[in-house]
Simulated scan of single mutants.
Amino acid sequence: MHRTYSMRATRAPTASQIQNPPPPPSTTKTGRLFGRGGIGGLGHALRRNAAGAFGPDLAKKLSQLVKMEKNVMRSLEMVAKERMEVAQQLSLWGEACDEDVSDVTDKLGVLLYEIGELEDQYVDRYDQYRVTMKSIRNIEASVQPSRDRKQKITDQIAQLKYKEPNSPRIVVLEQELVRAEAESLVAEAQLSNITREKIKAAYTYQFDALREHCEKVAIIAGYGKHLLELIDDTPVTPGETRPAYDGYEASKAIIQDCEDSLTNWVAQNAAVSAKLSTRSRTLSQRRRNNIKARTEGGVTGQGHDLSGQDAPLNDRDSWVPANQHKEVAHDYDVSEEEEEDDDEDEEDDIDAPGSHSLLDSESGINGEAGHHQRGRNQEPVAA
């Protein structure tokens, strides 16, 4: 390729890089056993399956996602590398062609090589997203022991109440359960807060990088089509000679214009913008207003005392013989409705930031645990 015209001859920081400094090279580009190309699909499958087979249960799904994203990054690296090799080969092939084809293919090689470089830079920014998602995985793994400890104590209490209802160890275990639930509540709150913070940051990295990459590729594609206009594709008859090619300065100017456009590109001047419809804007604004109102209410509100909401039950006295069920049916229905109302109030108080202390009672802790145990597939029961 004509290196004097190539955008690879100099590497001055672009306006976008000055505004948003580039991240360090991707962690997937170093420390490989089989070089930059890796071992292909076999390595991808091994990483994906191994990630889901080990580690805490809570972090398994996200661990698998992180490993799958590493596969994506390595595939992008391979595409970038092969793109640059294709660009060089295009220029080599064009050397033996007519002057206009030779000059244009050489400049097209420059543009394609630039796309390969952009894809390689995109991998580095993509790694920012992946590393941020890994931080969520790490906090999930740290929460798992507190969940396991709470579940273990709960199982021990249930076993003792079944085998030795009057065992003095039940009281000791119940006190340990209160402490374990308080620790778990703190860990779950941290997980909830960090997950929301990090997922927004992670996908902001990815979408910003994707937007910049696609906009710049679109710029290159536009200038590539301008280069193609320099080729005279008018049919000639046998023995007829084509006019001498006089587009060297034009092709050089197109490459320089392309370089200037890429250098001066910033996110504020992006050509493509996602515009919401009136309905989408209204619904999104309503959601933001609700979040703001809840946040302000959690800061200024005094919360509720839930200390007497879940009084311990005497299991022996709570059993009702089968022949007495009809007599207490009405009372049972009323108590069940009141219990459902209490559960709803309890969940609302737990969701409100700063609504109660971690050690106020077992009710807030048990309510949070029950919320997680219900799972995503169970439909909420209408009151």
Results as ranks from 00 to 15, higher is better:
282 T>M: 07
191 L>P: 07
255 I>F: 03
217 V>H: 01
19 Q>V: 08
168 P>Q: 03
361 S>W: 11
193 N>C: 08
225 K>I: 15
177 L>A: 11
319 W>N: 10
158 A>R: 12
188 E>F: 01
308 G>T: 09
240 E>V: 09
83 R>S: 15
364 G>M: 02
30 T>D: 11
288 R>N: 12
206 Q>K: 11
293 A>D: 13
193 N>F: 02
82 E>R: 04
37 G>P: 01
350 I>W: 14
259 E>C: 05
344 E>W: 10
133 M>T: 11
161 K>E: 12
208 D>T: 06
235 P>A: 01
233 D>M: 10
362 E>R: 09
256 Q>L: 06
184 S>Q: 07
143 V>K: 05
67 K>E: 11
62 L>C: 03
186 V>Q: 13
125 R>H: 12
302 Q>T: 13
142 S>L: 08
155 D>T: 07
18 I>H: 07
299 V>T: 10
10 T>N: 10
223 Y>R: 08
324 Q>R: 15
4 T>E: 14
342 D>V: 11
61 K>Q: 06
330 H>N: 09
376 R>V: 04
345 D>Q: 14
124 D>V: 05
241 T>Y: 10
117 E>A: 07
360 D>L: 00
50 A>N: 12
192 S>H: 14
8 R>L: 04
280 S>G: 12
81 K>H: 09
118 L>T: 02
137 R>L: 14
75 S>M: 05
136 I>N: 14
170 I>A: 07
328 V>D: 01
323 N>A: 09
60 K>S: 15
107 K>D: 11
71 N>I: 15
122 Y>L: 12
313 L>C: 08
237 T>N: 13
231 I>P: 05
274 A>D: 12
100 D>H: 04
77 E>K: 05
290 N>Y: 06
280 S>W: 03
